[in-house]
């Protein structure tokens, strides 16, 4: 997948991911706007309304057959697009790395291999294509932030450098935390089945994040962010959590409003989108 091809093709799609779709629609909306902003003709990406989930909960519960069926459905639904942008490391990892092995003994084996090449984890996509904006545009967040690496971004997609390059290019002040490569304890089903361990891991992670000195945490994986934000809120800690898409899109919106052409962006029918940036869980 080359830059040229993505830009030339109108057929970009956004895989909403079930968590963002349900609990943080702003992330999906922001992703759509960012993808639109990146495409050469300013074309709105397609958000298939029949999409549900990547099948990871089934796959990690041991329901291999269920996961295979879901993988086939996702490939059927998204197979026609040229680039599929996923605002979550773990879902991108599932589509990109686990589908081919899951489907290797099925008629979809070849399709899965082709499909794999079309998957873009959001930060990967933006690091490559979000180049039009100058860094002088006002930032949504003025103070320093710290970055939470999700395990799938670190070890499946290897995209941790993308997020950093992106934040730097956009002018954010990044304060690195220690123990970046340690899991936050979300792990989907794990966070419920082994809630005590999961919570203890969240506490360790929050400690490291706080030690960075920044009070704002950004990440590319909503699962981790919901888990950490939920824990921080329960402990009444002064930390705010945001998905990177929300932060970056704010910059685009700001610049758009300066130009006076706000109408062109993707907008939800709800009121929330018009509000200023609200941290997760607030």
């Amino acid at each position: 997948m080359t830059a040229k091809k993505v830009n030339a093709s109108p057929k970009n799609a956004v895989f909403a991911t079930c968590l963002a779709d349900t609990l943080r629609p702003q992330v999906v909306e922001a992703t759509c706007n960012l993808v639109k902003h990146c495409s050469a003709d300013n074309l709105t990406p397609i958000l298939p309304s029949e999409q549900t989930c990547c099948g990871q909960p089934l796959y990690n519960s041991g329901d291999r057959n269920g996961a295979i069926k879901q993988a086939m459905r996702v490939i059927d639904l998204f197979g026609e697009f040229d680039a599929i942008v996923v605002p979550s490391g773990s879902c991108a990892g599932m589509l990109k790395w686990h589908y081919p092995s899951l489907l290797q003994d099925t008629p979809y084996a070849q399709k899965a291999k082709i499909f794999k090449e079309k998957i873009w984890e959001l930060t990967e996509f933006l690091a490559k294509f979000l180049t039009k904006l100058s860094a002088k545009k006002p930032l949504a967040i003025k103070s320093a932030l710290t970055w939470h690496d999700s395990c799938s971004c670190l070890r499946e997609n290897n995209s941790e450098s993308c997020a950093r390059a992106l934040l730097k290019r956009r002018g954010f002040t990044l304060r690195e935390s220690t123990n970046r490569e340690v899991c936050c304890g979300f792990g989907g089903k794990f966070s419920i089945r082994h809630s005590a361990i999961s919570t203890s891991m969240a506490d360790d992670k929050i400690k490291s994040l706080q030690a960075s000195g920044a009070s704002i945490v950004a990440g590319a994986d909503l699962g981790c962010l919901l888990h950490l934000a939920g824990r921080a809120r329960r402990r009444a800690l002064p930390l705010s959590f945001f998905h990177i898409a929300e932060l970056l899109v704010e910059q685009i919106n700001n610049s758009k409003s300066e130009k006076g052409s706000p109408a062109s962006s993707v907008k939800s029918q709800t009121k929330t989108s018009k509000q200023t940036l609200v941290p997760i869980g607030a």
Binding site: C151, R155, E156, C183, G187, G188, F190
Partner: peptide, 8 residues
């Protein structure tokens, strides 16, 4: 089942 599959 006691793994978050962090892969480390």
């Amino acid at each position: 089942h006691a793994s978050s599959f962090c892969g480390r």
